Simulated assay, not measured.
Amino acid sequence: MAQTFSVCHGYGCYFKTNVTLTGTDRSRIASIMASGRKSPEGERAAVRRAVQVFEQRNTQVIGVVDRPKMDFGKGRERGQMDCVDESTNTDHFLHYLQGAGLLQFHTVARRDSRGSFFDGRYPHFTAVLKDRSGTLWAVDSWYEPGGGAPDVMTLAEWKSRGYGGVR
Protein backbone atom coordinates (compact mmCIF):
# COMPACT_ATOMS: atom_id res chain seq x y z
CA MET A 1 0.00 0.00 0.00
CA ALA A 2 1.34 3.46 -0.89
CA GLN A 3 2.26 5.88 1.86
CA THR A 4 1.57 9.56 1.15
CA PHE A 5 2.82 12.48 3.24
CA SER A 6 1.81 16.12 3.13
CA VAL A 7 5.32 17.63 3.08
CA CYS A 8 5.72 21.15 4.47
CA HIS A 9 7.99 23.70 2.80
CA GLY A 10 8.20 27.43 2.17
CA TYR A 11 8.80 28.20 5.88
CA GLY A 12 6.16 27.60 8.51
CA CYS A 13 4.41 25.03 6.28
CA TYR A 14 3.40 27.80 3.85
CA PHE A 15 3.28 25.18 1.07
CA LYS A 16 2.29 21.53 1.38
CA THR A 17 3.04 19.01 -1.33
CA ASN A 18 1.82 15.43 -1.34
CA VAL A 19 4.74 13.03 -1.59
CA THR A 20 4.13 9.31 -1.99
CA LEU A 21 6.76 6.78 -1.06
CA THR A 22 7.05 4.21 -3.81
CA GLY A 23 7.26 0.49 -3.10
CA THR A 24 10.98 0.77 -3.78
CA ASP A 25 11.29 3.64 -1.28
CA ARG A 26 9.40 1.69 1.38
CA SER A 27 11.49 -1.43 0.79
CA ARG A 28 14.70 0.56 0.99
CA ILE A 29 13.56 2.23 4.23
CA ALA A 30 12.51 -1.11 5.74
CA SER A 31 15.91 -2.59 4.82
CA ILE A 32 17.73 0.34 6.41
CA MET A 33 15.66 0.03 9.57
CA ALA A 34 16.22 -3.75 9.72
CA SER A 35 19.97 -3.07 9.78
CA GLY A 36 19.53 -1.26 13.10
CA ARG A 37 17.51 -3.86 15.00
CA LYS A 38 20.39 -5.07 17.18
CA SER A 39 20.58 -2.08 19.53
CA PRO A 40 19.12 1.35 20.32
CA GLU A 41 22.29 2.94 18.91
CA GLY A 42 21.93 0.94 15.71
CA GLU A 43 18.30 1.95 15.42
CA ARG A 44 19.16 5.65 15.79
CA ALA A 45 21.82 5.26 13.09
CA ALA A 46 19.24 3.58 10.86
CA VAL A 47 16.71 6.36 11.55
CA ARG A 48 19.36 8.86 10.46
CA ARG A 49 19.81 7.06 7.12
CA ALA A 50 16.05 6.51 6.64
CA VAL A 51 15.33 10.22 7.15
CA GLN A 52 17.85 10.93 4.37
CA VAL A 53 15.96 8.63 1.98
CA PHE A 54 12.67 10.29 2.93
CA GLU A 55 14.11 13.77 2.33
CA GLN A 56 15.68 12.73 -0.99
CA ARG A 57 12.25 11.59 -2.14
CA ASN A 58 10.70 14.88 -0.97
CA THR A 59 13.16 17.05 -2.86
CA GLN A 60 12.75 14.86 -5.95
CA VAL A 61 8.96 15.32 -5.95
CA ILE A 62 8.98 19.02 -5.01
CA GLY A 63 11.66 19.61 -7.63
CA VAL A 64 13.82 21.92 -5.54
CA VAL A 65 16.88 21.12 -3.48
CA ASP A 66 16.48 22.53 0.02
CA ARG A 67 19.49 24.56 1.15
CA PRO A 68 20.86 23.95 4.65
CA LYS A 69 19.52 26.04 7.53
CA MET A 70 17.40 28.90 6.26
CA ASP A 71 17.88 32.26 4.62
CA PHE A 72 16.07 34.98 6.53
CA GLY A 73 13.81 36.86 4.16
CA LYS A 74 13.57 33.88 1.79
CA GLY A 75 10.30 32.52 3.16
CA ARG A 76 7.60 31.39 0.78
CA GLU A 77 10.15 29.92 -1.58
CA ARG A 78 9.01 26.53 -2.86
CA GLY A 79 11.12 23.68 -1.54
CA GLN A 80 13.02 25.69 1.05
CA MET A 81 12.44 24.59 4.64
CA ASP A 82 12.83 26.21 8.01
CA CYS A 83 12.98 24.22 11.24
CA VAL A 84 9.19 24.19 11.52
CA ASP A 85 8.92 22.50 8.12
CA GLU A 86 11.83 20.14 8.82
CA SER A 87 10.67 19.07 12.27
CA THR A 88 7.06 18.60 11.11
CA ASN A 89 8.10 16.45 8.14
CA THR A 90 10.54 14.40 10.22
CA ASP A 91 7.92 13.92 12.95
CA HIS A 92 5.42 12.61 10.40
CA PHE A 93 8.04 10.27 8.97
CA LEU A 94 8.98 8.97 12.44
CA HIS A 95 5.28 8.27 13.08
CA TYR A 96 5.24 6.32 9.81
CA LEU A 97 8.22 4.25 10.98
CA GLN A 98 6.52 3.60 14.30
CA GLY A 99 3.18 2.69 12.69
CA ALA A 100 4.90 0.33 10.26
CA GLY A 101 6.55 -1.49 13.18
CA LEU A 102 10.02 -0.39 12.10
CA LEU A 103 10.99 1.10 15.48
CA GLN A 104 11.92 -1.53 18.08
CA PHE A 105 13.79 0.53 20.69
CA HIS A 106 12.13 3.94 20.39
CA THR A 107 8.75 5.62 20.25
CA VAL A 108 7.91 9.01 18.79
CA ALA A 109 7.67 11.81 21.35
CA ARG A 110 6.35 15.37 20.92
CA ARG A 111 8.40 17.80 18.90
CA ASP A 112 10.42 20.15 21.08
CA SER A 113 12.17 23.50 20.83
CA ARG A 114 15.03 25.56 22.19
CA GLY A 115 15.86 29.24 22.16
CA SER A 116 13.73 32.20 23.09
CA PHE A 117 15.60 35.32 21.88
CA PHE A 118 16.10 36.20 25.57
CA ASP A 119 18.81 33.56 25.82
CA GLY A 120 20.58 34.77 22.66
CA ARG A 121 19.17 32.02 20.46
CA TYR A 122 16.61 32.06 17.71
CA PRO A 123 13.72 29.62 18.42
CA HIS A 124 14.42 26.26 16.81
CA PHE A 125 12.33 23.06 16.60
CA THR A 126 13.14 19.36 16.28
CA ALA A 127 11.43 15.99 16.00
CA VAL A 128 11.99 13.71 19.01
CA LEU A 129 12.32 10.00 19.75
CA LYS A 130 12.13 8.42 23.20
CA ASP A 131 14.09 5.27 24.04
CA ARG A 132 13.01 2.58 26.50
CA SER A 133 14.98 4.18 29.35
CA GLY A 134 13.03 7.42 28.86
CA THR A 135 15.89 9.31 27.24
CA LEU A 136 14.70 11.77 24.59
CA TRP A 137 16.59 12.07 21.30
CA ALA A 138 16.49 15.03 18.90
CA VAL A 139 16.28 14.20 15.18
CA ASP A 140 17.15 17.51 13.51
CA SER A 141 17.66 17.75 9.74
CA TRP A 142 17.67 21.55 9.52
CA TYR A 143 21.44 21.99 9.38
CA GLU A 144 21.86 20.02 6.16
CA PRO A 145 20.37 20.43 2.69
CA GLY A 146 17.44 18.18 1.78
CA GLY A 147 18.64 14.59 1.89
CA GLY A 148 21.56 15.34 4.20
CA ALA A 149 22.09 13.31 7.36
CA PRO A 150 20.15 14.74 10.33
CA ASP A 151 21.71 15.32 13.71
CA VAL A 152 20.64 12.64 16.18
CA MET A 153 21.65 13.40 19.76
CA THR A 154 20.14 13.46 23.21
CA LEU A 155 17.56 16.18 23.51
CA ALA A 156 19.46 17.54 26.53
CA GLU A 157 22.61 17.98 24.41
CA TRP A 158 20.58 19.47 21.54
CA LYS A 159 18.95 21.98 23.91
CA SER A 160 22.37 23.15 25.14
CA ARG A 161 23.44 24.09 21.60
CA GLY A 162 22.37 26.62 19.00
CA TYR A 163 24.11 29.79 20.06
CA GLY A 164 25.04 32.04 17.12
CA GLY A 165 23.51 29.65 14.57
CA VAL A 166 26.03 26.96 15.43
CA ARG A 167 24.88 23.36 15.74
Rank of each mutant, 00 (worst) to 15 (best):
D66I: 00
E41N: 13
P68V: 11
P145W: 03
E144G: 06
K159D: 06
G115R: 00
H9Y: 09
L136E: 11
P40S: 03
Q56W: 01
M70C: 12
L103R: 06
L155Q: 03
Q104M: 14
K16Y: 13
Y14T: 13
T90I: 10
T17Y: 00
D131T: 07
T22L: 11
L155A: 09
T22E: 09
H106G: 05
Y143F: 14
C13I: 09
Q3E: 15
M153F: 13
V108R: 05
G36C: 02
H9E: 09
L21K: 04
R67I: 13
L21T: 02
V152D: 05
I29R: 07
V108T: 08
P123G: 09
E144C: 02
D91H: 12
F5T: 01
T154M: 09
H106V: 08
R161H: 13
G12R: 09
S87L: 04
R57P: 00
T20S: 10
K38Q: 15
P150N: 02
D119A: 05
P40K: 06
Q80W: 04
L21R: 08
Q3C: 14
V128P: 07
G120L: 04
V139G: 02
M153S: 14
G63E: 02
Y11W: 15
F125V: 08
N58G: 06
R114Y: 07
I62W: 04
Y163Q: 13
D112C: 09
Q56C: 05
A109I: 10
Y14P: 11
R67H: 14
G164D: 13
M1Q: 13
T20W: 12
Y122S: 12
D82I: 00
S6G: 14
G165V: 05
R121F: 07
P123C: 11
A100K: 07
D112H: 01
K159V: 03
G115Q: 04
F105Y: 11
S116P: 00
E43K: 09
